[in-house]
Design a protein around this nucleic acid. Structure first.
Lengths: 216, 216
DNA sequence: TTAGGTCTGATTGCATCCAATCACAAGAAA
DNA sequence: TTTCTTGTGATTGGATGCAATCAGACCTAA
């Protein structure tokens, strides 16, 4: 289960990947409109592949298309953001459970290295990037077809908001996250499925509640 | 949250809806190939809207597209079917929890009527149709944007397989389902969120395990 | 001033044509 | 016989032009 890159030769896929990066990096902000002609000119292609790319991004939840009207970068209100976190609480522990038994020693080494870098992160930028990397890596052992898609999609759509809201988080949050990540790592290493599930559930839940508190 | 019909004027949407019905009704069987030209002729349209419709169905998980190769009705192996049931076990109880507090008395009346018909169903066909109707109705109170999509998508993709596998289920299964549905209805009426979640979780889980037993 | 209607430019949706790619069959070599 | 190569038809991907639709400005009437 590769939750990272996606190499498909067709230009529509290439365009979709490129746009996806821009959205995840925050270059394209939620609510921004995308105009087919402009994109076509920029990518030196016709509107056909652009349209297909937009449909793919729509499937990823990154873009919202309204018939005869246009395409916008998906915009979440806080309720939707919260909803996605609630789904994550339920779904990611399952994916972790399915993954742990198939994690190779190589992957575990990689996980530990990422965790170390994560603990040393100083900027919010770094923290977000490494946090994402760490969690998605823990799922790499799951040979799932649908679960992986769902999880990836949720990480993608919430990405711009994690960036936005994490600015308001207290220092306290990062130390809690640090402790939970360490506990999670230990549970993974001794292949304790129930414990790992529980820690992850609590980790996501606590983050949601903290964001909830800060946001009002 | 309307999990039933979808009225969008654009022809690509109309085509997508039509194809969707055919797949869910079992006219188009998993593994069957879809050829753009043939569909274009049948729908008296060009290939552009057909292509868009296929992309939409891909997003719904009903169709699988391979670049430069073609489109097929999505085919699940048993492992994927099981995976989807595991996700349902985690996700649908959450949706039920979010729904119950907002169920109107009108909806509850409708639910009871559906349950009554469901208990009187004699053929497998009827059972499947009413079972789907009953469960999706219990979620109708949830004002969710993503959860609803996910749940609906899982019901859609597993539909052909529910039909296939339910043929091999014992009479025993239907009486268990009956009892669980009745318990669920009671929990819903007294708005007992925890109990409702637990019953639904067990209901989906038991079905999965029974199918697992029968299938090997 | 404000509400409603109409017009117009911008943009999307669809049709058609051509190019790129693939799958499969037929043939050649071992 | 088996395996590899090559070529050809079928099918998908992309480009271009036109029609349909929408949003916003402008005008008119109350």
């Amino acid at each position: 289960m590769v939750l990272v890159s996606n190499n498909d030769s067709a230009t529509s896929h290439a365009i979709a990947d490129d746009l996806k990066d821009r959205i995840l990096e925050g270059k394209y902000k939620p609510g921004m409109r995308l105009i087919q002609d402009e994109l076509a000119i920029e990518f030196k292609a016709s509107r056909s592949p652009i349209r297909e790319a937009l449909r793919m991004l729509e499937a990823d939840g990154l873009v919202t298309i309204k018939t005869h009207s246009g395409a916008w970068i998906t915009e979440l209100d806080f309720a939707e953001f919260e909803e996605l976190y609630q789904i994550r609480e339920r779904v990611e522990p399952l994916m972790l459970r399915l993954s742990i038994p198939h994690l190779t020693t190589k992957l575990i080494k990689e996980l530990e290295a990422t965790l170390e870098k994560l603990n040393e992160a100083t900027t919010v930028q770094q923290f977000l990037k490494l946090d994402r990397e760490f969690h998605l890596l823990t799922y790499e052992g799951a040979a799932t077809s649908y679960l992986g898609e769902i999880v990836q999609r949720m990480w993608n759509t919430t990405q711009p908001y994690r960036r936005r809201y994490s600015q308001i988080l207290e220092r306290e949050h990062f130390t809690s996250a640090h402790l939970e990540h360490t506990l999670l790592m230990k549970a993974i290493k001794r292949a304790d499925l129930d414990d790992a599930e529980r820690i992850l559930y609590g980790h996501i839940r606590r983050t949601r509640l903290e964001l909830q508190d800060q946001a009002e």
